[in-house]
C-alpha cells in the first residue's frame, strides 16, 4: 500500500492551529489594531526601524517564518475541508500549492531583508 502523506500535512495543521490559538489574538492586536493606532502598544514597536531590526535578526526571521508559515498551512488545511463540506468543492491540492508558493515567497522575502 502506498504510504499516505496526510500525517505530514496534519502535523502542520495541528502545529499551526496550536500557534494561532496561543498567540494569534495577541499578534493581530499588535500588528493590526493597537500598534497601528498607537494605543497601549506604542506605534514605535512596529515602525520601520523596529520592524526592520526584528526581521533582520536571525532569530526574528526564524520566529516570523515559523509562525506565519504554520498559520498558513493550518488555514489551508481547514479551508480545504470546509470547501469540501459546505460547497462540495475539492480544493485541497490547489490550496497546498498556494501555501507552498506563499511559504517560498515568505522565506525569500525574509532572507532579502
Amino acid at each position: 500500500m502506498k504510504r499516505s502523506n496526510e500525517p505530514f500535512f496534519w502535523l502542520l495543521f495541528g502545529a499551526g492551529g496550536m500557534v494561532a490559538a496561543l498567540i494569534g489574538a495577541g499578534l493581530v492586536l499588535v500588528t493590526g489594531l493597537l500598534g497601528p493606532v498607537n494605543l497601549i502598544v506604542p506605534g514605535r514597536a512596529i515602525d520601520y526601524a523596529h520592524a526592520h531590526a526584528f526581521a533582520a535578526h536571525p532569530l526574528g526571521k526564524l520566529a516570523l517564518f515559523g509562525v506565519i508559515a504554520l498559520i498558513l498551512w493550518h488555514s489551508v488545511h481547514r479551508m480545504g475541508e470546509v470547501l469540501h463540506d459546505a460547497a462540495h468543492i475539492g480544493a485541497a491540492v490547489p490550496l497546498r500549492i498556494v501555501a507552498l508558493l506563499a511559504t517560498l515567497a515568505l522565506g525569500w522575502i525574509l532572507l532579502a531583508i
Binding site: A20, G24, L27, V28, T31, G32, L64, I68, A69, I71, L72, H74, S75, V76, R78, M79, A102, A105, L106, I109
Partner: peptide, 9 residues
C-alpha cells in the same frame, strides 16, 4: 487566519 498570514507576508 489565511488572510492574516498573507497580510503579514
Amino acid at each position: 487566519l489565511f488572510a492574516y498570514a498573507l497580510t503579514l507576508i
